[in-house]
Structure formats: structure tokens, C-alpha cells
Design a protein around this nucleic acid. Sequence first.
RNA 1: GGGCGCGUAGCUCAACGGCAGAGCAGUGGCCUUUUAAGCCAUUGGUUCUGGGUUCGAAUCCCAGCGCGCUCACCA
Length: 508
Amino acid sequence: MTEYTQLQQIRLQKIEELRTQGINPYPTRAERTHTSLQAIAALEAAPEGEPVPATLAGRIRATRPMGKLSFAHIEDGAGKIQLFFRINELGQEKVDFFNKMFDLGDFIQAEGLMMRTRTGEPTLQVTDFRMLAKAVSPLPADKDVEQPDGTIKRYAALEDPELRARQRYADLAVNPQVRETFRKRAAIIKALRNFLDSNDFLEVETPILQPLYGGAAARPFTTHHNELEQDMYLRISFELYLKRLLVGNLERVYEIGRDFRNEGVSYKHNPEFTQLEFYAAYFDYLKVMDLTEAMIGHVCDAVFGSRKFTFEKEPGKVYELDFTSWRRLEMRQGILETSGIDIAEHPTAESLFQAIVTRHPQAKPDPTVTRGKLIDFLLGEFLEPTLIQPTFLYDYPRDISPLAKPKPGDPLTVERFEGYAAGFELCNAFTELNDPLDQEQRFLDMQEDYDDDEEEKNPLDEDYLRAMRYGMPPNGGFGMGIDRLTMLLTNNRSIREVLLFPASRNEA
RNA sequence: GGGCGCGUAGCUCAACGGCAGAGCAGUGGCCUUUUAAGCCAUUGGUUCUGGGUUCGAAUCCCAGCGCGCUCACCA
């Protein structure tokens, strides 16, 4: 049984009072002729003295009752506008009715003529109004006050990150900049689609519920299909299904959707996240690099009209990011410059481990892992934090890249690159391995490398190998976290700020 | 998982071993161009939960729950 606060009980009484007066506090239909901004524009466009009738609908955000008149601000999807209730037009009874029965947060429909107040503010002088939806709970915010210089000053607001995420509806209702972030997010995704569509990519949908998982090194979520009597997994990547489509002569495909990884939660990790992957026949990783640069540039232009962004990674740590052109840095070179170790001189895990602990006694690499994982350690420890400006880091160790094609003449290295900005990984791409015999061997190697970790070990996907044996064109593939891109472009330092409903524990 | 920090009214926060408070929101009153409207009055608390120390705990200690930051993990 819901327990209501005193504030809520007062509003419940008002709902009852409305019903006893024969007024439905939640009517089925609503009317409006203008949004707030349309009404203001209509007033500005109309000749002096010509009446501008309008019917508006929105949520009450502020009221200023003054006895024989009353002002209110309502907010709709477009913006805010002031309402003016006066006994001259409405009579004392209706003004009292408004003051008594309407609260902050209620949705109201108001009809009247547009006017300007003494201070010049475009305002609807109300001749009739009605309740559209009564709010039981007050919105958790006080007031936004627009200062003379046009900035918004907030006197008190919903700020607790937990509450804001758990009650995103309330966060969105009271924090306009949060709405803006999610509009930007939608625009980013739309721009990505536009770009890929206009480059002859076909948007496809592949299974989220899979009998086997693969395409990334991550622990999956497991579920069960009752009728099929088999366990299923939520996908950890799209890769293996999208590449099956290349076998089927779909030359350029992409998918935007959700991946699920049963791993830690952090400022840049959420258990489900939105991924873009594309694959293009006859591309190699250099062509993918060019396309990526063009694609991100297109998103910047289309959504923001600029390729320069300010990103505050930590309080006071502000970066100016420029996505006009990406630096291209060979991983070996980057690691050499930042750690002083040349990985090419250490072809075995043992040799590389010794080099690391000798040169960096304070570093704590895991002595049991492969050479590739040690290189990844060097990358994360020394190189990654320095990759502030957009950078393509290329040529990765083979053993941590089981789906990438070897670099000709270099058996330890594959044609793979990752895009970095502001010190974190944004995307991952490679020249895709299309040799079914090599692919099978890689799967088998993985079984050994991940011997200690049953779940993170990619299961051997026989059907994928069967597909590849029919012939897969040479191709380049790409994956990018949309959430991280949105973080960078909207200056949000936590992934939770760009997810409408980030993962949370059950409420106690 | 480790470390640090936080949890007090609807919201934002004080009080830090001695009567649980403020602003806004709410309620009642005055007020015909306000815009943080103003003025007067006033309601509202399991101080996250459970133990403990103490004459006395929001405050100190222990445990738990939740969250934040950070480290680890994370192709």
C-alpha cells in the first residue's frame, strides 16, 4: 500500500474535490493550437493590435498568485511561456479556482489571446482553462531563474546522481540540459545512420538471443529458453553474425543495437550498451580508418556544426578535442615513446615481462598472461592516458585479436586499430580474418589462452567456420560504443549521464 | 572485489556529544502586470537500517543496505 506524504495527500484531496465538482482530473482528450514557441512567434509576427488567439498545453512550472490576478509559467516540449489569469477576463471565481486547484507539475490546457505584459514578456491572457493531468507528487525542483544576461540560475534542483538516474522521468522533467543530452544522443545516432546509408551500407538486425556468444572477450548473460530446452546467451557483440552476411554477398552491412556484458560497472562501462558495427567487403583497416574519420566528422558537422569540442574529463581537467583529423600512431611506436620498451625486441611473454619489471619496478603486470596481454597492459598503463587528441592506434598483437587478419610479413601482429580520444577507447576495427583454416586455429589457440576462464573463453563457433568455408570476401570491420561517443560530444564524464536508465541495484 | 567519502523535511543543505534547523516547495491570510513576486502566520522528521558506547547519539564505534569517487577487472 502506497504511503503518501503530507504534500501528496493535499493533492489527492484536490483530485477528490475536482471529481465531486464533476471535473475529470485526467481527461481523455486535449487540444492545442500552438506550442509555446509557436505562440510567441505568432505574436511577434502579427501586426500591432491584431488579436492572436492560441490554445496552449503544458506543465505548470511556476505560479505567482496575486489575489485578483495570477501569473504562471508552463513548459511544453518546445519551451516555456507565461500565462496570465485576471478577474477581468475570467471572473474572481475562476481565478480562485486556478489558485486553489492547480499545483506545480500539473498539466493544464489554456485558451486565450497573446499579449505582452508591462515588462514586454509574451504572455497568454487566459480566457478559459482546464486540467489535463493532475500531479500527485511535487516535482523535485525549485525554480530556474533566467538572469538578465540570459543564463539560467538554479536555486535548488534535483542533483543527487542516484536519484536522477533512478527517477530519470523527474530528472528530465526538471533539468532541461538532460533533455538536451538525449536529443543530442538521438541526433548522433541519426547522423551515423545517414552517413552509412548514403555510403551504401545496409542496416540489418541480428539475434540478441544467441545459442553461442562470441566476437569479443567478455562474460555473457545467460538465460534459458523453456520450449527449446536450451540455455541462451545475450550477445556480447554483433561481429560473427554480421560477417556471416558478407558470405551471403551483402557487401556492406551495419547494425546499431545493444550489447550485453556481464562485467564490472564503471564511469565508462554499463552492462548493456549501444554499439555500432559495420563491415565492408574489399575494405582493409586503412580504408576503415578513412571512413571512420569521415563518419565522425559528419556526425560533428550534422549535430553540432563544429568539429571542436570541450571535454572535462575530471573537475578542472578540461581538454579541447579536435575531430577534424585523427593522429595515426603505430602501437609499437606509441608504447616505445611512453614506456621506453620496444615490444618488437620481445617476441615472447617471458622476455617482455622481464623488460617491463626491469624498466618499471613499480608496475605490476600479471606474470601468467600472454605477450599480447602484456602489451595491452603497457598500452593501458603508459600509452592510453596520453591519447587525448583523437588518435588511431594501429597494429595490434595477434594473440589478443583472434578475428583480425595478420599483417603481411609479421606473424605476431594483426591489422587492427583502435580509436582513442580524451584518454579512452572509442572504437575498434580491423582487417577481418577471412581464412577459415587460420580462423579455426585461432579459436583453438584461444581455448588454451583462456584455459583458466571458462566464461571469457570464446566458444568455438562451428557454424561461423562453416559460413567462412563458403568464401568470405576480404573485408574491414568496425565497432564503436555509441555511449562513449555521446559522452565525448556532449561533455559528460560518466556513461550513466548518457543512458536514460543506467543499470542500478534494486532499491532497498 | 579493495580504498576513500556520503546518506538529516518533497528538493538543496546546516547542526558534528547537549532542545533537529534554514531556504525553496506546501498550508492559511493580504495583494489587479508579476517573473526567485512581496509581506504575515504556519504544517512537515524512523536524522538509511540494526546493534553498541554514553547520563545523553544525527554526531562516536561495529555491522548491513544504497550511492558517489577511485583502484583493480574489462580485447
